[in-house]
Design a protein around this nucleic acid. Structure first.
Lengths: 301, 301
DNA sequence: GCATATTTGTGCGTATGTATT
DNA sequence: TAATACATACGCACAAATATG
């Protein structure tokens, strides 16, 4: 939570009509105090003709940076509003504007009541997926388009996976296979992925696991975003049928299980070309390619 | 749902008598009027134990949906605060919280002064890129990781491009080549892409053009995001050198121009495998693969 | 330079929800 | 179960900064 050193230099030439504001309290007050490097929100540029940053935006940016840089970690509680007001030297409405912004970014969640207040959450791909989905929905993108994009992501991932396969990676893939096999036989147990609590997670997560094990963090995040968008579109757009999510996001038949098994074997044999070819064919199968040419419909049509 | 739905359309051109005013409580007497009546905020569901949507969040969601769905288009001016207050039945601080949220999402921009107010902007990939960058920075992702991801995106795009090449696509690729050639010989003129006003756009945009012409909107948006992240990281992280953006985001040498030319030829010949192989090799070249193993540093290190 | 319209920031008061006793 | 303290949610009114004409 740090000492939340606010902006000290505001050139805005505020007069003394009001008690001096924006004078940060330098003292470390919070219980768990973290060191915060002296930051300068405004580097003294004078040429800025437009783009006057709002005070709430500055406060939000300050807290956001602390969260992103790890100075504020998951579950950390921010000081009460009154303390933050004094530390930042802003009024309550301004502070609350910053809260709403950060809350919309899922970087904090504010609860009211005793022991309430703002708690920190680490940024996950869901928020990025939400805004990417906004753009896609605005462009009238179809669900099939998103699915095709996700398939395009998996192909290079499989290739890389086959090229850089380690015993640990093979072990995780095989574990996923056995988990999926156990889940398809009846009840399934949770997945180590931790992304969803769906008991069908082992079935749904194999594709994502491929991307994740490929080792590229950016592709992993992107795949997570696309997966989130597809899941949201399936459960929110095409008629509130959570049961219909399966064929839309992933396949779950035993014949697909066989393809998965063969893919792991090819990866284990370091057959990059073979693995890529198999997966490309698998993704192009009509059973996998869904019929949803509907326009993406997030955030409630 | 909620009671914030009757906000009609804020078309500034023709906004007659507002059909439905918010069911604001008329009791605005001395004591602060009851905030939003609990009549419609909660639709009677009993299951939701947590997740109480804030009023500002509802207002922001309402406006956001209008923007995303195209009911409010680029450049549209929202009514003044007073009008929106009455239409939504909320107070000014609440409305301003919603404004800050939408402003942080770049869906509106608020100017003050006469003829000021909030104007609508269509969602572009920059905001999504900003939040994706937040996640990546939080995960200590390196610039090379992002570049590798972008390269992974281009490979299937090139393949698809070769498979579905039309004369129009070939023409656009050739136009980009000639533009880049003209730009590399001295001064360059603008590009039809419209994404950037950089005179070096023809040089920088060839990779993005490949993805764009492949026809997948999702991949196009993602590539735009990654491009934005790399550009921001290059100009903001590695030492404020906008001139150094070139080699980091794209290559610009004449030898690369030759590769680009050969790629277009392969695409024209519908040689998908050859084009993909050439591009994969091109992307794996050490000159293209930069040395930036630095951790991503957006939003100011 | 002046007038006007509009957002911006602030202070304070009340209402409501939540955890603890 | 009921009372209580705490913390946020929301409202209103006023002063200041800003951009336009």
């Amino acid at each position: 939570m740090a000492l939340l050193q606010p902006a000290a230099n505001f050139d805005t030439t505020r007069r003394g009509a009001h008690p001096v504001r924006m004078t940060r309290v330098a003292g470390t007050v919070g219980p768990p105090a973290r060191s915060l490097p002296a930051t300068l929100l405004d580097d003294g540029r004078v040429g800025r003709h437009v783009r006057v940053p709002k005070t709430a935006e500055l406060v939000a940016a300050h807290l956001r940076r602390q969260i992103v840089r790890g100075e504020l970690v998951e579950g950390d509680a921010l000081p009460p509003e009154a303390v933050l007001m004094e530390q930042f030297g802003v009024s309550r409405p301004t502070l609350r504007e910053a809260f709403r912004v950060l809350e919309s970014e899922a970087l904090i969640s504010v609860r009211r009541g005793a022991h309430g207040g703002a708690r920190v959450h680490r940024p996950d791909g869901h928020v990025a997926a939400r805004y990417a989905g906004l753009v896609l929905e605005h462009r009238r993108t179809t669900v099939a388009d998103v699915q095709h994009a996700r398939a395009s992501l998996e192909t290079p991932a499989v290739r890389t996976l086959a090229e850089t396969a380690t015993p640990q990676v093979i072990a995780r893939l095989r574990a996923a296979l056995t988990e999926a096999a156990a889940a398809i036989d009846g009840r399934g147990q949770g997945e180590a992925d931790g992304t969803t609590a769906d008991p069908r997670a082992p079935l749904l997560g194999f594709h994502h696991l491929l991307v994740e094990l490929a080792g590229n963090q950016t592709l992993t995040v992107i795949d997570h975003m696309l997966r989130h968008i597809l899941h949201q579109a399936a459960s929110h757009g095409t008629g509130e049928h959570p049961d219909a999510v399966g064929p839309v996001t992933e396949e779950a038949g035993p014949e697909h299980q066989d393809v998965h098994r063969r893919l792991v074997e090819l990866i284990e044999r370091q057959d990059a070309l073979g693995a890529e070819a198999l997966w490309r064919q698998h993704l192009a199968e009509p059973g996998t390619e869904p019929l949803s040419h509907a326009v993406l419909d997030l955030l409630g049509g």
